[in-house]
Amino acid sequence: MDFDLESLVHVEQDFYDAGYTDGYEHGRIHGLIEGRALGREKGFEMWEELGFYEGLCKTWRSVLEMQGKQDSRATHHITHLLDLISKFPSVNPSQEDAETNANMDISRLLRLIRSRYKALCASLGIVPSLRATDAEGGSDEDAPTTTRKSVWKVNAAPKAEDMSF
């Protein structure tokens, strides 16, 4: 009788384990699919903004050269802005990178980029794009911005809730 009970417990565990293994494989597929969908939206959103600044800088630089204003304040801003953008990660940094590399403060870098962009617009006498205006509005709701930052910056230990916002 004792022996029967013992083996029964194992059998329960065996059934559970078999189910778990199958479920885990299936869950992985869903995790990859859902993660990809979120990641590509986020990457697009971030780099559309940065790319806009980048394209704008490259074009204004050429315009200023053509007008013989290479030494203007605007050119100075452009150089700095392009440099800042080149430091921005185009791959989601891992948590180790974020911890070991002090330059990996992404939200700070983004703030620097946006304010440099606005300074450039001011020196050129043009109206900044809505992208930067959005950013100003965003500072009001600092809390969600901070949690979001962790979504793609330190997401090494993702929680399902964090990922699906």
Binding site: R28, I29, G31, R36, R40, G43, P158, M163
Partner: peptide, 19 residues
Amino acid sequence: GITAGKEGALQEGFDAGFA
């Protein structure tokens, strides 16, 4: 198993789609 597998793969998918 589904829950664990999904949570384990979300980040991997996110990073791939992002980059």
